[in-house]
């Protein structure tokens, strides 16, 4: 069995379309952090590169719960879509070849969410990615007890 030091080499072996796997393995791509404006609103760009059938980044990190404004870019020569989590309803956008759009999401935290391209089996080929929300719940929602050990 291969050990952890070989992770990058192994990921390179399976990375991309029609290599070890038919599609891209979820969560095996890049990771990036959203930026934050002074008012706390977060911003980030997610995109689909040509023939990648994967979201870039595959993990987007938000420092806290709240509103994030996404720019969504399809650099692929095929049509895709994006279905994103947001409080109230999922947000949908169609992405023609070489198109760019926007989405505003409201997300609780902490926790993480998956989103994808609901077209054919885009989701299984690799167009499923994560939004990770860090932080803690508001102080008033915490239990009245001393701090507890965490894993």
């Amino acid at each position: 069995m291969t050990i952890a030091e070989d992770r990058e080499a192994l990921l390179a072996e399976i990375g991309g379309q029609n290599k070890a796997t038919i599609g891209a393995v979820l969560g095996s791509g890049s990771i990036a952090k959203a930026t934050e404006r002074a008012d706390g609103t977060m911003e980030a760009t997610i995109r689909i590169a040509e023939d990648a059938l994967a979201w870039e980044p595959s993990v987007l990190v938000l420092p806290h719960a709240g509103t994030v404004e996404l720019t969504i870019i399809n650099d692929d020569k095929n049509t895709h879509a994006c279905l994103l989590p947001s409080n109230g309803d999922r947000k949908f956008i169609g992405l023609l070849n070489h198109s760019k759009g926007r989405a505003t999401l409201e997300l609780d935290g902490p926790g993480y969410y998956w989103y994808g391209s609901p077209a054919g089996n885009d989701e299984g080929r690799g167009l499923t990615a994560a939004i990770v929300v860090g932080g803690e719940v508001p102080p008033e929602a915490k239990l009245d007890r001393p701090a507890q050990p965490r894993p």
Binding site: L83, D89, K91, N97, S99, R102
Partner: peptide, 17 residues
């Protein structure tokens, strides 16, 4: 440089129902 097609703003999924 080719201009991107404007995909607009994401909508509530339930609007497509």
């Amino acid at each position: 440089t080719i201009e991107y097609v404007d995909a607009g703003e994401a909508i509530n999924h339930s609007q497509l129902s």
